[in-house]
Amino acid sequence: MPHPSGGPSGTDTFPALCGHTHLFPGARCRVQGLPDPDAFAAAPRPLDVDLRFSDGVLVAARLLTEPGEGSPLVLAVPAHTTAAGTRIDARAWRIRGLVVREGADVELVVGALPRS
Rank of each mutant, 00 (worst) to 15 (best):
P67G: 10
T21R: 11
L23D: 14
L75R: 03
R91H: 15
L47T: 13
R87T: 11
E66R: 12
G85Q: 00
L63D: 07
P72W: 02
L51W: 12
S71F: 02
V31S: 02
I95M: 09
P37H: 03
D50S: 07
P2G: 00
G68V: 03
R28F: 06
S5T: 14
F24G: 03
G68E: 06
T11A: 05
T86N: 05
A16D: 02
F24L: 08
P72E: 04
V109E: 09
Q32R: 14
G111M: 10
H80W: 13
V57E: 07
V57P: 00
G33S: 06
G68W: 01
D105V: 01
R52P: 00
E66C: 04
P37K: 03
A16E: 11
R52N: 09
T65C: 13
P67H: 05
P67E: 15
P114K: 00
L58S: 13
V74C: 00
A39D: 14
V59A: 08
P25L: 10
D38L: 11
H3I: 13
I88Y: 08
G103S: 01
G33D: 04
A104S: 14
C18K: 02
A92S: 13
S71D: 02
D12I: 08
A60T: 12
F40R: 05
P72L: 07
E107T: 15
S5V: 08
L75Y: 02
L108A: 06
L17H: 11
P37M: 10
H22P: 02
D55C: 08
V49N: 05
G6P: 02
G10P: 03
G111Y: 06
R115K: 05
A112P: 10
